[in-house]
Design a protein around this nucleic acid. Structure first.
Lengths: 329, 329
DNA sequence: AGTTGATTTGTAATCGATTACATTTTTCTT
DNA sequence: AAGAAAAATGTAATCGATTACAAATCAACT
């Protein structure tokens, strides 16, 4: 394997010149530039990244810590982050923390060991509550989850407002007994719950909620309970894609048709939401944009560590489908 | 930041001893071991990974190159790989090559630069055809795609057989004009096509196939064409999850009910396959197991570079649902 | 031509670990 | 108790780049 000194010898220059040419630094004559480039080409020289990283103290690597890559929301975010990262000659280290604060801490520690340039994190509730930018030797951008109080760069959906609009849509369609099933492990669920509550209150309606761990199974169980209660809710709303899936499974099990017997709506426009039943009304998140915005924010922060804290709030889009069709009678 | 020499000073030993203790090497007295460990603890010493990697020439990193992480099959495989990797104190670098041989080559080059311990790759057809283990300075395990001729460690589904069983199932249910829509960008689609053809031939039936790029859009278009033809096919089979999705969209657009007007079956048991319509018959792949097997194979190969080439073939499971219900008449 | 200042190039220190080899200490043998 | 063999420990070289600093070259202006 050729090293920088071999290239230097071949080109008849010093290693410093080779390094300068390759780093694109100014102050090197065109003649030397050409000779170095030629030598690099003929020898197929590849700088050793380990050496480079040791000496330069930069890794050009970013960490992405999500709860579970299998959640389609994070799949899409991760794809966006990876695309942008490679475009900027950076690497991505991906971790699944499973909403577990201990794993999150573990992986954040690992990021420190890796000396990453920055981290994109979707924190669980406990981690978010404790979060201080200054606790980490690298920039952190929060994604998907963020509190009003949190002082950190972040990219989130307008959760409260989206939930408000979704709930209001159902109310306008003539539904009143609207049940909201939401995940308790993340700030997202809480905020969407808040929007739901506000919308219901605005219209003088009573709320009906179930807080569950954000899993298909938990949502299915909760919805099962709700559908066994009397009077039956007129509509069910799930606070994210996994929960929505659980609701559908419960309706299947209870042999309830939607929207005829019970209306349905939720968050996350997944490939199947318009194919299940007559199509499901959802708030679509601009997932790819969220990922893109997150890494852009991170790259800016890496470049200018002292710039002011920014929060990017993206708007969810209401996609009306048959599952929330106007209530007859 | 504490370095190894600080720890050595604090513990009153040499840097070599510290290194030996931390590496878990034998031949160091219990007394020193304890003193070093104590010093490491009190100083919260973290070895610098860049330095470690430079000197030891090992990165404990593996590369995972898939076509697109948004394909649920690869999402699940990737999760398995990450889980196992972190359990073995290894990092994962994930790349999306979009079925593009050039991008695959690019990322494989990047893996060389990163000096990874090994790579898990799901190659496009051209890359697979050209694949030689000896072209790479690191072990490579193929996943999902592999030819009979390919001489490389690999983990794949029993594609031919699975497709044969799925097709035979439809035939046994009374279907004869069965159309097979398959992806041409990967070996997987071809092999499943082969199983379909064999099953049809065995029963003396004529084949009806459409080869498409493995995307939802292409599959939708192809299915649209098929459903406009007369006589209408009696059943549609998609060679993977994305294609299946495209087929369903096409049936929706053409307002064809399944299985009443046309039966449906495919590959990949995704969260929604039993929720769309009356449930869709599929071959379920043991995706997590596939990922797990791949990294196990890779770790073994890293440990024993000269062991004989292994191929792990996992069996797909036929999940019969209503979309392939027995044909009336 | 000589001096000054700017620009280009080269030499050698440095990043922070691992590890080959040398040295010291311990254990065992006779 | 002396000497040999084995085990433990330490010293210093090494991995392969970047970069601070020194040296050399070049240009411009008296």
């Amino acid at each position: 394997m050729a090293q920088i000194k071999d290239v230097a010898k071949q080109a008849g220059v010093s290693v410093a010149s080779v390094s300068r040419v390759l780093a694109g630094h100014a102050g090197v004559s065109e003649a030397i530039r050409q000779r170095v480039l030629e030598a690099v080409r003929t020898m197929d020289y590849r700088p050793d990244l380990a050496a480079k990283r040791l000496r330069s103290r930069r890794t050009d690597t970013i960490g992405l810590i999500v709860s579970d890559i299998r959640n389609p929301f994070f799949t899409e975010v991760s794809r966006a982050v990876e695309d942008m990262a490679y475009q900027n000659r950076m690497r991505v280290i991906l971790c699944n923390a499973d909403e577990d604060p201990e794993k999150e801490a573990l992986y954040l520690d690992l990021m420190r060991d890796e000396n990453v340039s920055g981290v994109i994190l979707s924190p669980s509730l406990p981690t978010l509550a404790r979060f201080r930018m200054s606790d980490y030797p690298f920039p952190v951008v929060l994604v998907d989850r963020c509190d009003r109080e949190t002082n950190a760069d972040a990219v989130v959906l307008d959760n409260v407002d989206s939930a408000y609009r979704l709930t209001t849509h159902l109310i306008e369609q003539g539904y009143q007994r609207i049940a909201f099933i939401y995940g308790t492990t993340s700030a997202t669920g809480r905020q969407r719950h808040e929007g739901y509550v506000t919308a219901m209150a605005t219209h003088g309606l009573e709320t009906l909620t179930q807080a569950v761990p954000a899993t298909v199974e938990a949502a299915r169980a909760a919805a099962g309970e709700l559908t066994r209660g009397r009077p039956l809710p007129e509509a069910l709303v799930g606070s994210n894609g996994l929960i929505l899936l659980g609701l559908i499974e419960a309706l299947r099990a209870a042999q309830l048709q939607f929207p005829e017997q019970i209306a349905l709506a939720g968050f996350d426009d997944l490939p199947w939401t318009r194919l299940v039943g007559p199509g499901i009304t959802v708030i679509a998140q601009p997932t790819y944009d969220i990922g893109q915005a997150a890494i852009e924010l991170l790259l800016q922060r890496i470049a200018h560590s002292s710039q002011s804290v920014r929060r990017v709030v993206l708007r969810g889009e209401l996609r009306e489908r048959e599952s929330s069709r106007r209530r007859r009678g």
